Simulated assay, not measured.
Amino acid sequence: MPHFDDLLSLGASISRYPLEGYREKCDTSVVLGTRFAKKPIELKIPVTIAGMSFGALSGPAKEALGRGATLAGTSTTTGDGGMTNEERGHSEKLVYQYLPSRYGMNPDDLRRADAIEVVVGQGAKPGGGGMLLGQKITERVARMRNLPIGIDQRSACRHPDWTGPDDLEIKILETAARSPTGKSRSISRSAAPGPITTPRWRSRPGADVVVLDGMQGGTAATQDVFIEHVGQPTLACIRPAVKALQDLGMHRKVQLVVSGGIRSGADVAKALALGADAVAIGTAALIALGENDPKWAAEYDTLGTTADAYDDWHEGKDPAGITTQDPELMKRFDPIEGARKLRNFLAVMTLECQTIARACGKSHVHNLEPEDLCSLTLEAAAMAGVPLAGTSWIPGQGGF
C-alpha cells in the first residue's frame, strides 16, 4: 500500500535558499477555526491527537494523552464513549467527538469542550460501526455508555437523526445552542471517510475544519476484513480534498487536518506539502506512550505476538496497561511518564518537519507545497498527484 514513505522531499532548489537552522525562524503554529469561531483553537505545532475512546483506552492512558498534548502545545480528542475527567482535567484544548452511537453523549460535557467534532465516518472502518468487546466493558465504561456490563457494545455506522447536509446544519445549530455564554471556540463535524469539523459557539453554521481520516490506524475495533480491505490510503485522499476546498474557494479558510498512518515528522511535512494544515496521530501516540514496550516482551510472546507487532487491543490484555480495562494491568502504566514520552515524541516530529521545511527554504511549515515533492513509485505518483522522480509526469495526467 503506498504510504508517505513513497514521497520524497526535494529540499532546496537553485531558486530558493535553504534556511539556516540556528538563525532563521521556521514557524510551526496552527490556528483552527478561523472562519466562524469567535475563539479559534491556537496550536503551537501542526500535530494533534486523534480521537480514541475511553474503553478502547484506559483512564490513565487518556490522562497521559491530555498531559502530553498540553506540554507540547496541541489538542486531544475524546473519541467514542464520552469525556473522562482525567482527559478533560489535563487537556488544555480538548475536542469532543459527537458520534453516531451517542455513547457517553452528555450535554454538560459538550459545554466543557473546546471544540465539537460531529463524526460521519472513520477511515479505519468507513461505512461500518465499531465494536468494544465485553471484556473491556467494566462498570465505569458501561455507566458512561449507559449499557450493560460485560456485553459487547457495537457503535452505529451512521447518525440516526440526519441523512444529509440540511439535517447536519440543524444538528450544528442544536449543539451551538447548548454552548455556554461567553465561551466561543471552534466546533467540528466529520465527513466520510473521516471527520469534518464545523465551528462551535458562533452565529452561523458551516465548516471551520475538515478532518480527513485515511484507512490506516484504528484500535482494532472492527473486523479484519474492514481494516484490510475497506477505505482509501491517506495518501490518496489529500489532493482530492484540497481540490474540493480550492473549488469552493475555502482552502486555508477551512482548515484541513489529515489522519491515518502518520508516523514521523517527515510524514507531517509531506502531508502539509500536499495541502493539509495539520495532522492527527493515534497509533503513533500510543507507541510513544509505551505501547509495545520491549520490557514486556515475554508477555507479548505469551499472547502469541512480539513487542514490535502487538495490535490485538480489542482483547483487553495489553501488558503495557494502555489499551485495557484490567485494573492490575493499568497499574503498570504511569501517566506522567507516558506524558513525558509523548511530549518528547511530538517535539521530535515537529523538529523533523521543520528540518525539511528549512531545507526547502520555508519560513513556516504551511509554506510547503506539492512542488517540494516527487514520487518514488508509480502508485504514489498517481495517488498523490505528484510527479514521478526524475520526470514531470503524473500517471493519468498526460504524456511522459
Score class of each variant (00 low, 15 high):
387 P>K: 02
333 F>V: 06
65 L>P: 03
190 S>F: 08
23 R>A: 13
108 D>C: 03
287 I>S: 07
86 E>S: 01
3 H>P: 01
206 G>W: 13
98 Y>I: 15
195 P>W: 14
163 T>V: 12
89 G>F: 10
108 D>K: 07
284 A>D: 00
213 D>G: 08
338 G>W: 04
88 R>W: 03
59 G>V: 02
381 A>V: 10
186 S>R: 11
375 S>C: 11
274 L>R: 00
381 A>T: 09
244 A>G: 00
157 C>F: 10
288 A>M: 05
51 G>F: 01
215 M>K: 14
198 T>Y: 14
303 L>A: 00
89 G>Y: 08
5 D>V: 01
123 G>L: 10
399 G>M: 11
367 N>M: 12
302 T>L: 12
122 Q>P: 01
110 L>M: 13
60 P>G: 10
136 K>D: 02
313 W>Q: 01
190 S>P: 04
338 G>P: 03
47 V>P: 04
300 Y>H: 03
95 V>I: 15
279 V>C: 08
189 R>N: 02
119 V>T: 15
238 I>H: 12
209 V>W: 13
385 G>N: 07
167 D>S: 11
66 G>Y: 07
179 S>L: 10
354 Q>F: 05
24 E>L: 11
183 K>F: 13
121 G>A: 15
389 A>S: 04
290 G>I: 05
389 A>F: 06
85 N>P: 02
274 L>W: 02
319 P>Y: 06
81 G>F: 08
85 N>I: 08
39 K>Y: 07
277 D>S: 15
375 S>P: 05
175 T>Y: 11
370 P>W: 09
330 M>N: 06
112 R>W: 03
73 G>E: 06
41 I>T: 03
25 K>A: 11
272 L>F: 08
355 T>F: 13
282 G>C: 09
225 V>C: 12
81 G>S: 06
224 D>F: 13
167 D>T: 01
251 H>R: 12
9 S>Y: 03
346 L>P: 09
146 N>K: 14
144 M>N: 09
130 G>S: 12
224 D>R: 12
357 A>K: 02
50 A>H: 01
371 E>I: 11
284 A>E: 09
65 L>R: 05
365 V>R: 10
362 K>Q: 12
258 V>Q: 02
321 G>H: 09
268 V>Q: 04
40 P>Y: 14
268 V>S: 04
209 V>M: 15
299 E>P: 02
39 K>H: 12
106 N>I: 03
184 S>V: 01
111 R>P: 05
257 V>T: 06
240 P>T: 14
286 L>V: 05
292 N>A: 04
343 R>I: 00
43 L>T: 05
